[in-house]
């Protein structure tokens, strides 16, 4: 059997490798890093735009907290930041204590559970805060 157009580039391997916790964390750390950078760029531009307004009322800011689209975006962004932060701590932990490297899979799952707990708790307070603003 003959086949042509075979992709021998590492990209194909990275798809398989994503099933491994270390590689998944490595790829996601970069993606979330770029996402944070883009968000902060947008955030700074938005702040500059607001600064040129003569007066800023609570009504101007309300869409950022009560709109469904911004709420979903904030939720996604929260997950991105928590994952990036928690994974960063995991890498630092391995740097400081090299002997922990043999338990890297277990440590990965512990930190991922911590990330999920962090996201759930912060989301709870975010929704609580939003409902307070909406009712005021």
């Amino acid at each position: 059997m003959l086949m042509t157009d075979i992709d021998m580039s590492p990209k194909r391997y990275s798809k398989t490798a994503l099933k491994e916790p270390g590689m998944f964390a490595w790829v996601m750390h970069r993606i979330t890093g770029i996402a944070i950078l883009l968000f902060f760029g947008w955030h700074v531009i938005d702040l500059v735009r607001l600064a040129y307004q003569k007066t800023i009322t609570i009504a101007d800011l309300q869409p950022f907290f009560t709109g469904y689209v911004t709420m979903i975006l904030n939720g996604i962004f929260l997950g991105v930041i928590v994952f990036h932060g928690i994974n960063g701590f995991r890498v630092i932990l391995h740097d400081i204590f090299p002997s922990l490297n043999k338990y890297y899979k277990q440590i990965f799952w512990i930190f991922m559970i911590l990330a999920i707990i962090g996201i759930v708790v912060t989301l709870y307070y975010m929704i609580l805060f939003t409902s307070v603003i909406a009712s005021s």
Partner: peptide, 21 residues
């Protein structure tokens, strides 16, 4: 950057990331 692919790949079961750290 701790992707741990080297540890998974090593046929001699050497923890290469430990050595790097």
């Amino acid at each position: 950057h701790h992707a741990y692919r080297c540890v998974e790949a090593c046929p001699k079961n050497i923890n290469t990331t430990y050595a790097i750290d």
